[in-house]
Write a protein that binds this DNA or RNA. Structure first.
Lengths: 258, 258
DNA sequence: TCGTCGGCTTGATCTAAATCACGGCGGCGG
DNA sequence: CCGCCGCCGTGATTTAGATCAAGCCGACGA
């Protein structure tokens, strides 16, 4: 078991390693971070090549199926996690069960940074994912030795804060149509995959989750998507992929309540 | 003029100093930060007594009447500001004029930290205020020389992020009554002033502003306040002060939609 | 192959909050 | 002292989105 987390479903068993001399295993372990898909992103980007073995020693990657919890709101914050692959949803829950998704995390994002003693939100995989665990103590040691790590953390937190304020604007002011259009455009800015020369977005999360992120019921989301499709601004290529056909039109829908 | 900012109303003229030898003025200027009401708060708390003269040299306090802009969304971010006294509202504006207040800033809070080139929001005084300007370059120099400053900045940004996520939960999930109760309780946690043995909150901003913060129209806010008053949970002592009579009741109103 | 189940979509109805309308009150200037 | 103006509160009405209800479709297991 790579590391233990509260789960609602079993983790994927680690792939059994083929026979190899111990010395090679250690070498592979030491260089793990240098070949990681998150190497150039998130916190890891602040590390020098020389520091990678240290990080490799302090971190532990783990594979999870979908619908697994990585951190749990209110629990003692012992570690942070870097997303190596997959997607997670971050959400807060009210006592009566209502949930608000505050964001989605993908490769390079850091999960579980806590102000106080405990996690402020729950993080749950929405697809099978790999996340890399670093204890708070290790992170603190890393920051001490390398001020660039702290700077990087500050930059990442600031970006997240800015995104959170955009979300506040969206939830406080915008209509359903504006929310959905804003979301599609923001998603499109990230995923650069083109389909037939048009940008498209990959949305592996359920419609309920997208609604919980935008402060909308799934029925409302469905209706808005239909309108956008009828208006020729989007095409639903599959259940989890939408092509953005008319960026200007979406931009208009995103601010002029239409 | 202490420093120039875009304003919608004239700043207060600096109080004319009584006659004093130049040498005393310089001494007073050097020790300004050590007697500042924000000394123990915000960024300044991370500075050693020895660094205060340096900060005094790099900063400039300025007095503003209410309804003045300190930073303007979209403008080039040249400096940050520490609130020394008074209260400001921070808001974002949509092209058609809708405004969402993302927070209120009081003594010790830092305004104008920007991720990129330009300010992400507008900051406007809601009461007469004093804010202390530090250029981005000076702040960068201060951080370089004293890693504690960067750490402090990270801590403050993290707290703000956490507050922003709470606000996302409020705007995405909660009913009008829940929003108002949550707001009153959160305000009460800050201002510890007791009236007749009960906590009370000082709300110098207009009802429109409170509404713009909670994602509600002022009419709705008014109706909810009336209900809370009729339920014996609050008393309106004056237009800008509310006494919280029943914290448990408010707590219930804040989460169980009532 | 069939049947079940859960997520998605669409239609009908309901409701919380927005909008519209108006009256009162307090501060400020004349 | 009076009159104006802007903020506040309250009632009447409207509406965007929630809720309720039902059918569709693809995935999965037997």
């Amino acid at each position: 078991m790579p590391f233990s987390v509260a789960t609602t479903a079993p983790t994927v068993a680690p792939v059994p390693m083929p026979e190899a001399p111990v010395i090679e295993k250690i070498a592979a372990e030491k260089s793990r971070c240098s070949t990681c898909s998150a190497r150039a992103k998130g916190l890891c980007a602040a590390l020098t090549p020389e520091q990678l073995p240290e990080l490799a020693a302090a971190s532990r990657p783990g594979d999870l199926l979908s619908a697994n919890l990585v951190v749990n709101e209110g629990e003692k914050a012992e570690a942070v996690f870097t997303v190596v692959s997959g997607m997670l949803k971050l959400y807060k829950t009210l006592p009566d069960g209502r949930q608000q998704i505050t964001g989605f995390a993908t490769v390079g994002d850091v999960i579980g940074l806590a102000v106080g003693e405990s996690y402020a939100y729950t993080a749950e995989t929405v697809t099978a994912s790999t996340v890399c665990r670093v204890s708070r103590a290790s992170l603190a040691r890393l920051m001490e030795r390398n001020p660039a790590v702290q700077g990087r953390l500050l930059a990442m937190t600031s970006v997240e804060l800015s995104a959170a304020q955009d979300q506040i604007l969206l939830l406080g002011c915008k209509t359903a149509a504006e929310r959905v259009s804003s979301f599609l455009l923001a998603s499109g800015r990230r995923s650069k995959r083109l389909v037939d020369g048009k940008p498209s977005v990959f949305l592996p999360m359920s419609k309920v989750d997208i609604g919980a992120y935008l402060g909308l019921r799934p029925e409302t989301l469905s209706r808005v998507l239909r309108k956008l499709e009828d208006a020729g601004q989007i095409t639903r290529l599959s259940n989890d992929r939408i092509r953005l056909d008319d960026l200007d039109g979406l931009e208009a829908s995103a601010t002029v309540s239409a």
